[in-house]
């Protein structure tokens, strides 16, 4: 148990460190933007004439809806892990 708390602490530390550092933010970008989006920007810098030939069939209409779906994704995953662990723990204790 102690070991697991320590593991969680490591993750928290790794996640908090970036906030304590100073970063130079490139023009037109916000701090802590996504790497996927930065790669997209980089593509258009290297090949300014490249035009994407396919568009997503559906895009979340706002940042709120996007975070709703990301929240849903994490919730589904956590439910699966929690159900599995709870099921076997309950069976072991029974």
């Amino acid at each position: 148990m102690k070991k697991n708390l320590l593991l969680l602490l490591f993750v928290v530390i790794l996640t908090v460190i970036p906030f304590m550092m100073t970063h130079t933010v490139k023009e037109g970008q916000e701090a802590f933007s996504g790497a996927d989006g930065q790669a997209e920007t980089l593509i258009t810098q290297i090949h300014p004439d490249y035009t994407p030939w396919f568009k997503p069939l559906w895009e979340p209409p706002s940042g709120e809806i996007e975070s709703l779906l990301f929240g849903l994704q994490a919730a589904i995953g956590a439910a699966l892990i929690g159900y599995c662990l709870g099921f076997y723990r309950g069976r072991k204790l029974a």
Partner: peptide, 14 residues
Amino acid sequence: FVLSALKLPSVTGS
């Protein structure tokens, strides 16, 4: 599902 939904900050500022 959980891990790929977690957008974590990194030392590079992204």
